[in-house]
């Protein structure tokens, strides 16, 4: 008589297998390894560097791998005043980043134009890019940037990644289960 047992249970691997939702696992992986694109344009970039250095240590949140190639980045940190001359260059770099991608607008200038109410300054990077987290301050302290990064991690952990990025596959699966 053949032995029957639950396919999902095996005493040999008990304790080594975790059941979870696919999205939760995917998001957990993503949020703990955010590679930033340091779009340093003004004084905020100095605080960004401070956040990456040993005292504040952005590596504690898995975001220490600053990549200067947009093709290897997950999150663009726009740190500084975006002039109109620079605006389309920022957009071009954003477009070269692979999906999924996020944007942190760091500081007053990147968020709203800040104190630069001027003919030369873009009044907030959200006029060009979809911003996920705004960090206030002029410039923000490194703690503020880290808090913004943690907010972004929270946001990523709530995302419906599979459905957002593979809609056809998700639909197919849903049909087959229906």
């Amino acid at each position: 008589m053949p032995e029957t047992r639950a396919t999902a249970y095996d005493s040999k691997i008990e304790g080594n297998v975790i059941f979870t939702r696919f999205d939760a696992a995917l998001n957990w992986v993503r949020k703990n390894s955010l590679w930033p694109m340091p779009m340093g344009l003004a004084c905020c970039a100095i605080e960004l560097m401070a956040a990456a250095a040993s005292r504040f240590d952005i590596a504690r949140f898995g975001a220490e791998v600053m990549r200067f190639s947009p093709r290897q980045c997950d999150v663009m940190i726009v740190a500084g005043t975006v002039t109109y001359k620079m605006a389309l260059a920022v957009k071009r770099i954003y477009e070269q980043m692979p999906e999924p991608k996020w944007v942190i607008a760091m500081g007053a200038c990147a968020s709203t134009g800040g104190m630069y109410r001027s003919y030369a300054v873009l009044q907030g990077i959200d006029q060009l890019l979809p911003v996920d987290v705004y960090v206030s301050g002029c410039p923000p302290r490194p703690e503020a940037l880290l808090a913004g990064l943690m907010k972004l991690q929270e946001k990523i952990s709530r995302e419906r990644s599979f459905r957002n990025q593979k809609p056809e596959l998700a639909e197919k699966l849903e049909e087959s289960f229906a």
Binding site: Y84, A87, L88, R117, S118
Partner: peptide
């Protein structure tokens, strides 16, 4: 030339918009 600037458009190079000078936090 007004402080808030004038709108302009150069495709693929740059654009400008008129900056709001009243209201807002700054």
């Amino acid at each position: 030339f007004p402080l808030e600037g004038l709108p302009s458009e150069m495709p693929d190079v740059a654009f400008t918009k008129v900056t709001p000078l009243e209201g807002g936090p700054f």
